[in-house]
């Protein structure tokens, strides 16, 4: 017991000495910690507004508590299932299409034999990633315009009927997802290309001797090599699943497509900043945030069980 206390004392002393010796390191992280505290943790504490009847005059801290009223109101509102469904389906859709394509792109590029050509294709297909969301949506409007857009000119050229893409709600998700693929497939493939460059050459040589063709080698050697990367990326996108896309969806919204384009985040924005109900908006935002967290934790647990991969 005595000895134990003594060693603990010694430990505290050596920790203190260490901290004094390295005080400059603590000074270096201090500014970031202050920033994180103010701009991340204070708003987290401020989330309590979701359980209060916010009054601008009283401020967050003095507004009266009303418990779960706002959350209940949201769950019982006629929009609830529609919003949840819209949010869910557009993200599932973009994950289902947007996730495998970069892997396919990486596999294709990896098989190209001329190094210069490979680099060229890779560089070009990464470029759209740098276009801002606003410009991207602007391009969508330009390209899909019924009478002036290039896509409709092409359809007309082939003898088809012109389509008012943005005014038709059944096209909304398709346009959202495909434009996303166009913009990000190159960028998202970089990580897989990098992983593929680490494939063991000897395995390929051995497989050739055994008479495996190129497709077989892709399937049995290349794809297993990038599997850990694949799982981590999938995990990350699933965790963010319900939160992505505010800017793009908000910008693509027209009164005609609101039926399918209104998602939880855009609705929150409108409730708070167009309708002025800050508490109700915050409650909806919190609902989404918690849902996201539950998703992330569960997917992480599944991945850990299945393949020993985990985000933390």
């Amino acid at each position: 017991m005595r000895l134990n206390l003594h060693t603990r004392k010694l430990q505290t002393q050596s920790l203190k000495r260490e901290m004094v010796k390295n005080y400059q390191l603590y000074l270096m992280v201090l500014p970031s910690i202050v920033m994180i505290a103010i701009f991340q943790y204070v708003p987290m504490y401020g989330v309590q507004i979701a359980f209060k009847d916010f009054n601008a005059r009283l401020g967050i801290w003095s507004s009266p508590w009303i418990g779960l009223t706002h959350i209940e109101k949201f769950i019982q509102s006629p929009y609830f299932f529609k919003l949840l469904w819209n949010t869910f389906i557009i993200n599932v859709y973009s994950l289902a299409i947007g996730f495998p394509i970069p892997i396919l792109v990486a596999v294709i590029l990896n098989e190209l034999e001329r190094e210069v050509y490979k680099k060229f294709v890779q560089t070009v297909i990464c470029i759209p990633h740098f276009i801002s969301t606003v410009v991207m949506v602007g391009m969508i409007f330009l390209f899909t315009n019924e009478s002036k857009g290039i896509i409709n000119h092409f359809i007309a050229f082939l003898g088809g009927e012109r389509i008012a893409f943005m005014a038709k709600q059944q096209w909304f998700r398709t346009i959202y997802v495909l434009s996303g693929v166009w913009q990000n497939m190159g960028w998202n493939s970089i990580i897989y290309i990098a992983a593929l460059s680490g494939v063991d050459v000897q395995m390929h040589e051995a497989a050739i001797i055994d008479g495996a063709g190129r497709l077989k080698r892709i399937w049995h050697i290349n794809l297993p090599t990038i599997k850990p990367t694949f799982v981590i990326m999938l995990l990350m996108s699933m965790g963010k699943m319900l939160s992505v896309g505010f800017e793009k969806i908000y910008l693509m919204q027209l009164p005609l497509n609101l039926e399918v384009s209104e998602v939880i985040s855009t609705y929150t924005y409108k409730i708070a900043f167009e309708g002025g109900s800050f508490s109700y908006g915050a409650a909806i935002g919190l609902f989404l945030n918690v849902l996201n967290l539950i998703l992330l934790v569960s997917f992480n647990r599944i991945a850990r069980k299945m393949g020993d991969v985990s985000l933390w």
Binding site: V42, Y269, G285, N289, L293
Partner: peptide, 8 residues
């Protein structure tokens, strides 16, 4: 993984 959200 967690934030206060746009309103707070």
């Amino acid at each position: 993984y967690f934030s206060g959200g746009m309103i707070s």
